[in-house]
Design a protein around this nucleic acid. Structure first.
Lengths: 242, 242
DNA sequence: TTGACTTATATGTCTAGACATATAATCGTA
DNA sequence: TACGATTATATGTCTAGACATATAAGTCAA
């Protein structure tokens, strides 16, 4: 849910109620722990039916802005800094959004039986076939990120014959694999020789690393490591709040 | 909203409907673009009123799992890897969760009129007073992160007299400032002399950087930079999906 | 004072309707 | 054929009720 502030000028009543309450919470007028009016009080104030205020309050509860307790009422929750929404855009989209030209280059592609290291990386026990892909994304002909990917062919058989020389594997997967879950791990390293050369930076320069592990219903799809020059690239995570 | 899978065994009907549909989407049985049954079809299948299936579908739409279009129907959305939930835990909580002992140490605290650099960092135009704090968090007596923070006193006046020698400013703010919004920027740097010494790592070692900028209703609260040894610390972001 | 029982109440879910509204599809006309 | 007007329809919102259920608060006995 977005719950962006300006629902106040929305024509529908439940959105107005939701926005009114949200505003009071975000401005601090109703601090954490404060009991917001009972449903029947809001019904009286807005002159509407209970289902309408219930819908507004349910959405605020889903957004973790309030907590609802039977018999007790609804209460403003404590802010939760620890949870932020991180947008990890498709690299092409990210580059074109910056008004720069996107470039893609396949560096290597290998089809092989999974080695012990591959199985470890994919988090699978059984051996099977995998595709290993190394490629590079660039912005205005300048290296932007290098990608090192492993695709589990037992989950995505047709990746064996896909042409990754023109289409990046990330975008191919997005179009050929339905809903998935993913886990991203972010860390920092310094560039080794190979990385430095691929990104055209100095050996020892900082790099931001995103490891993404993707699966669907307990089935591994792919594991990918993205390396960005650390001083030029930034990830932005926004807390949902307002 | 969590929308965790096992709503199937929930006793309430709308949750069962929601879980049934979600399962078909996540397993790929209903791929992206697939039109899910119309509300009136689900009403017939489950033998309930339209409001009940509407509630189930509305929640799936809020979770971005489906898209609803008037006159056309409801459709399974394309997976959106780019949006992940990043948990940036309170440092103390993070360390104690690992079963290690938390240590805190105030390195420096200054109260001053905002310099041009301060105003830039806080994103404010007018001059005012600020508190600048430098401190260190450690796990089992080993440096874990160094924190460099600026608090805008025009927004949080009582931070001027708060005792940050024992309580970390992050936790103090969490208890003294209600709901806020925040933006996190993640990048990588290599340690300079000062950082290397504070974190007890080598000069030139990689560091993960989190810059957090916090405000409330367009009012700046604080700006903080957290530096972690890059090879030991990892941030994990999980995609919301299932 | 403590513990067990009862009661009152706010939320949770659900119904069978209603009208509004955006828009895909159709039809008619230039 | 292309374009504009009309119509059908799925979703969006809302109502005025209903019963279920968890639980805070009060009651009473040990």
């Amino acid at each position: 849910m977005s719950l962006t502030a300006d629902a106040a000028d929305q024509p529908t009543l439940y959105k107005r109620i939701r926005a009114d309450i949200q505003k009071r919470i975000l401005t601090g007028e109703w601090p954490p722990g404060h009991r917001i009016p009972f449903e029947h009080e809001l019904v009286a104030r807005y002159g509407c039916s209970r289902m309408t205020v219930n819908k507004a309050l349910s959405e605020l509860a889903q957004a973790d802005l309030i907590e609802r307790r039977r018999r007790a009422g609804s209460f403003v929750r404590r802010p939760q800094h620890q949870s932020a929404v991180l947008k990890i855009a498709d690299i092409r989209a990210e580059i074109t959004a910056l008004g720069r030209s996107y470039g893609y280059e396949l560096i290597g592609r290998k089809l092989r039986a999974a080695t012990a290291a591959d199985r470890d990386r994919l988090g699978v026990k059984k051996a099977g076939k995998v595709v290993a892909i190394t490629c590079r994304h660039s912005a205005d002909k300048v290296p932007f990120a290098v990608e090192d990917r492993l695709i589990d062919l037992s989950s995505v058989p047709n990746a064996a014959t896909a042409d990754f020389s023109r289409e990046p594997p990330g975008s191919w997967l997005l179009h050929h694999v339905p809903w998935t879950e993913a886990e991203h791990t972010i860390s920092a390293i310094v560039a080794d020789d190979r990385t430095a050369e691929a990104l055209d930076i100095a050996v020892g320069a900082p790099c931001l690393v995103i490891d993404r592990y993707t699966w669907r219903s307990a089935r591994t799809i792919t594991a990918v490591r993205l390396l960005y020059p650390g001083d030029s690239h930034r990830l932005v995570a926004r807390f949902k709040g307002g």
